[in-house]
């Protein structure tokens, strides 16, 4: 009986489990479980690779490490620049959807639906070969950042619109009653609250942006994914190129994912 109970305690979460009160034995139990999952996954990978009979040649990839690092840095630069620009676009089009001007509202609706409803790959190709060409925009890095900003901006516009709409109408009414102008209402009442509410989805959007920027490799922007593809083309070491690629993206997205979780928890406590 007691043996069965201790097994249960090792593998099953008790009903009154609270993450906040991390006790020593809980930490121990969790580590055992993490270890077991790790062993299970490793076994699965090992099985997969053993069937493949693949010989790893890490030294080939090591030779090209500078290319990989440069690509990694380029991905960071593109993602951060695009994030900045897309926040501006997101705020503009998020608010434009509430505008009194019909054309502005219709335009932002079309923009958001068109971008969210089509694959990024298609958008990159059309923007780069048609629009950027027509505009005489030759720098492919600038074009890449613009494309990613326009893409991400559409998602942010929806996040920001939802954020603004989540501010109750009674608050807007109260702001009017105490004599704030419309502009003051946005500045002192709406925006300060919207910012804390949209921070978690904004962080999530940033993680997506980092991953999605890998598609820019098809227009020969030397970011992380293209660097890995080039290494692969030169060395024929496919897995040795792509495994570091996956790990590199995780290095960027995992901290953001952690941050998102923290922001969400903090916001929950505030309400």
């Amino acid at each position: 009986m007691s043996e069965k109970n201790s097994l249960q305690a090792l593998f099953l979460r008790p009903k009154n489990w609270q993450m906040d009160s991390v006790k020593k034995e809980n930490v121990w139990i969790l580590s055992v479980n993490v270890l077991l999952v790790g062993i299970l996954l490793s076994a699965l990978m090992w099985f997969g690779f053993s069937r493949l009979q693949y010989v790893f040649m890490w030294e080939h990839v090591w030779y090209y490490r500078i290319n990989m690092i440069n690509g990694f840095l380029m991905t960071i630069v593109i993602s951060i620049s695009s994030l900045g620009l897309s926040v501006l676009l997101g705020i503009f089009f998020g608010l434009a959807q509430r505008s009194r001007i019909h054309m502005l509202r219709i335009f932002s609706r079309i923009y958001i639906e068109a971008i969210r409803g089509t694959p990024l790959l298609v958008q990159i190709l059309i923007f780069f070969y048609v629009i950027a060409n027509a505009l005489g925009l030759n720098n492919r890095y600038v074009a890449g950042i613009l494309i990613m900003s326009i893409f991400s901006g559409a998602y942010l516009a929806e996040i920001i619109r939802a954020g603004v709409e989540s501010i109750g109408s009674t608050q807007i009414e109260t702001a009017r009653a105490i004599g704030l102008t419309k502009r003051q209402t946005y500045r002192f009442v709406v925006f300060p609250q919207v910012i804390t509410r949209v921070l978690p989805p904004l962080a999530g959007q940033f993680a997506s942006l980092i991953k999605d920027s890998s598609l820019l490799s098809i227009i020969a922007i030397k970011e992380f994914t293209l660097a890995a593809r080039e290494v692969n083309a030169n060395t024929f070491s496919t897995l040795e190129s792509y495994i570091p690629l996956a790990i590199g993206y995780l290095l960027l997205t995992l901290p953001i994912s952690y941050l998102t979780g923290r922001l969400e928890r903090r916001y929950r406590y505030e309400t």
Binding site: G168, Q171, T174, A175, R176, I178, T181, Q193
Partner: peptide, 29 residues
């Protein structure tokens, strides 16, 4: 708007701005 500056209004509920402290709520207007 000009007229509203001369009067005080209190609603049923949710009058206060949730992101501001009690003091800041009074100071804002």
């Amino acid at each position: 708007l000009e007229y509203r500056k001369h009067i005080g209004m209190v609603y049923q509920a949710y009058n206060l701005f949730p992101h501001l402290s009690a003091l800041e709520n009074i100071i804002l207007p």
